[in-house]
């Protein structure tokens, strides 16, 4: 792998693996899909998201390119890869958070339940209320715990008393027992792990069907991390979860599917190297580069 990174530094482009762009026809059976030798194995389940040749530019910088990927419903899908491979950028494509970066431009199609979310007629606000997001660093608003949870629900006109909405969401986020007597306390006074669960509760209160998590545990200690991971396994019964993580053990513990991305050409241009069920990716990767990354030889 050293040679490879050295090659990367010298600007030698790495030939892409010889494979058809999209070998799976929609009518391929689940069995055919699994048996295929292609490192990219689209899951047999129904897809919440279908990404077709998605690319992202920040001005002249090509952040990700040519990503074709189905995200299955009610599963945890992990996006892994070394820093700068574009996994967070890809996540932010899914709820149009990249719209907020003036120079960002998305190509290809991102279908959410069959609807192209980048179509001209689509309102990004409508997209984001259905697709919740939890950020890398816990970012509770400087408001009370209850106001934090209720904020998204209120701006989206969800009916119900604030107290009920807060209680329901906090219970789902496994935070209720810890804060039920302090709902008026500022969200900033909670510990880091609690803050992150508050942010999850805040997202749940909007009643999304997908939750995007951008390295949700990177700022947390191991115990708080464990709690979040347990929570993720709990939540996936009702929600589709996509998690970006640089922690391979975490991906192995929480996810059902794993997508491995790698930056080529000097950290520009992130591409999908391998995708499939997590246990296969971690035990018998089909790509040498996946194996090298997972076994910690680089990244």
């Amino acid at each position: 792998m050293r040679e490879l990174t050295a090659e990367l530094r010298q600007g030698v482009t790495i030939p892409r693996p010889e494979r058809p762009r999209r070998i799976l026809t929609p009518d391929a059976t689940a069995a055919e899909r699994v048996q295929s030798e292609d490192p990219i194995r689209q899951p047999p389940e129904d897809a919440v998201f279908r990404l077709q040749d998605v690319g992202l530019w920040y001005g002249a910088k090509h952040a990700i390119s040519g990503i074709t990927l189905d995200i299955p419903v009610n599963r945890v899908t992990a996006l892994i890869g070394p820093s700068g491979c574009g996994k967070s950028s890809l996540l932010r494509c899914l709820n149009r958070m990249n719209d907020l970066i003036p120079s960002a431009r998305v190509e290809g199609t991102v279908e959410y339940h069959g609807a192209d979310i980048y179509a001209k007629s689509v309102d990004p606000v409508e997209v984001r209320r259905r697709i919740g997001m939890v950020f890398q660093k816990p970012n509770p608003f400087p408001k009370s715990i209850q106001d934090n949870v209720v904020f998204g629900a209120k701006v989206n006109g969800i009916e119900g008393s604030s107290r009920e909405i807060a209680e329901r969401a906090l219970k789902q986020a496994a935070l209720w027992d810890e804060v039920k007597n302090d709902l008026k306390m500022s969200g900033l006074e909670l510990s880091g792990g609690q803050q992150q669960r508050l942010c999850i509760a805040r997202a749940l209160a909007v009643q999304p069907d997908v939750i995007l998590m951008d390295e949700p545990c990177s700022a947390l200690d191991p115990i708080a991390t464990l709690k979040i991971e347990d929570l993720i396994r709990e939540l996936v019964k009702e929600y589709t979860i996509i998690i970006v993580t640089h922690n391979m053990q975490q991906a192995a513990r929480v996810s059902d599917y794993t997508a491995f991305l790698l930056a080529q050409e000097h950290g520009l241009n992130g591409t999908l190297i391998e995708y499939g069920p997590t246990n296969e990716i971690f035990t018998q990767p089909r790509e040498q580069r996946t194996e090298d990354y997972i076994t910690g030889r680089f990244g």
Partner: peptide
């Protein structure tokens, strides 16, 4: 902090 703005927008705020 931009995270406050992003947090609100990600919740579907306009």
């Amino acid at each position: 902090p931009p995270s406050l703005r992003d947090g609100a927008l990600a919740l579907g705020a306009t």
